[in-house]
Simulated scan of single mutants.
Amino acid sequence: MKLVRPAAVAGMFYPGEAAVLRTEVERLLARAEQDGEAASAPWPKAIIVPHAGYIYSGAVAASGYALLAKGRGHIRRVVLLGPAHRLPFRGLALPGVQAMQTPLGTVAVDQAGVEALAGLPEVREMPAAHAQEHALEVQLPFIQEVLGDVSVVPLVVGDARPDEVARVLEKLWGGEETVIVISSDLSHYHPYAEARAIDHHTVEEILRFDPTPIDHEQACGATPINGLLPVARKHHLHPRLVGLCNSGDTAGSRDAVVGYAAVAFYGESHDHTGR
């Protein structure tokens, strides 16, 4: 029997009806392509995108995913990492299933990728870590809409060291058939102006591969980001800021906001300037 992780936050973080969800994702992507340079740019090897409700962060997430559109048909696997919000645990957790479900259908879990991680002690199967976790789930409809029939290696990142995350990414790095998606919001619940200052500083640290790790006050996905950065630098990727805002810019009060950014990492052969 095929084991499937059912959608847990459909109807809360994003629309629960397939037709409504598809229309919303298409709208967000169309706006991102119109506002940016997605149509002319090569696709990045890795992106950092936010994971709040679509009403808050969907536009920024779409600005990252729109850049992957040219890879449709070439990209076959998405390595998807995001932080644990629901269950504390040590290491990185696989869901122990064969597919992940959204209202748009199921996304296959890449079994070859799972097997490639079998020798790493920091990686284990833990369905409970995935059961109610939204950080990965909210990415799946974008992946389905932009990339079509691809598989994912979904990893919830708990209490782990950046070098452990880096080791996982190296194992799964692959070629143009593989892209890396890091799911992370930025600062949480600061007043609007203060949050903007914090988030601009965090983005600058990411863009210059600052050797000082960012902390969880700066980004809830600090651990997967800190794991990605040295690997991206080793592989000569070049980061570019694609989108930056906070919930006060979209659908929330400015008294206490959550920050969102989309950052794309391009290979040496790609024009990462956006020109």
Score class of each variant (00 low, 15 high):
7 A>I: 07
19 A>T: 15
22 R>C: 15
23 T>K: 10
27 R>E: 13
30 A>R: 06
31 R>D: 13
32 A>H: 02
34 Q>P: 04
35 D>K: 03
36 G>F: 00
44 P>T: 00
48 I>H: 01
48 I>D: 02
49 V>C: 06
50 P>F: 02
51 H>M: 07
54 Y>G: 11
56 Y>D: 14
57 S>W: 00
61 A>N: 06
62 A>H: 02
64 G>Q: 06
65 Y>G: 08
69 A>W: 09
69 A>R: 12
71 G>K: 03
72 R>F: 13
72 R>Q: 14
78 V>H: 11
78 V>L: 06
79 V>R: 06
79 V>E: 04
81 L>R: 05
82 G>K: 03
85 H>K: 03
88 P>W: 06
89 F>M: 02
89 F>Q: 04
90 R>Y: 10
93 A>P: 04
95 P>W: 05
96 G>N: 08
96 G>R: 03
113 G>S: 02
114 V>S: 07
115 E>A: 11
116 A>C: 12
117 L>R: 04
118 A>M: 04
120 L>E: 08
122 E>D: 09
124 R>F: 15
127 P>W: 08
135 A>L: 08
135 A>N: 11
145 E>V: 12
148 G>L: 01
148 G>E: 06
149 D>C: 07
150 V>H: 05
153 V>S: 02
153 V>P: 08
156 V>A: 09
163 D>M: 14
170 E>H: 12
173 W>Q: 07
184 S>L: 01
185 D>M: 09
187 S>D: 04
191 P>G: 10
193 A>I: 12
193 A>L: 14
194 E>K: 14
194 E>M: 11
202 T>N: 08
205 E>D: 12
208 R>E: 13
210 D>L: 12
217 E>T: 15
219 A>N: 08
221 G>C: 03
222 A>H: 06
223 T>R: 05
228 L>N: 11
231 V>L: 13
232 A>F: 13
233 R>A: 14
241 L>D: 00
244 L>E: 00
245 C>W: 05
246 N>D: 15
246 N>H: 09
248 G>Q: 02
253 S>K: 10
255 D>F: 11
266 Y>W: 14
266 Y>M: 07
267 G>Y: 02
268 E>D: 15
271 D>W: 01
275 R>I: 07
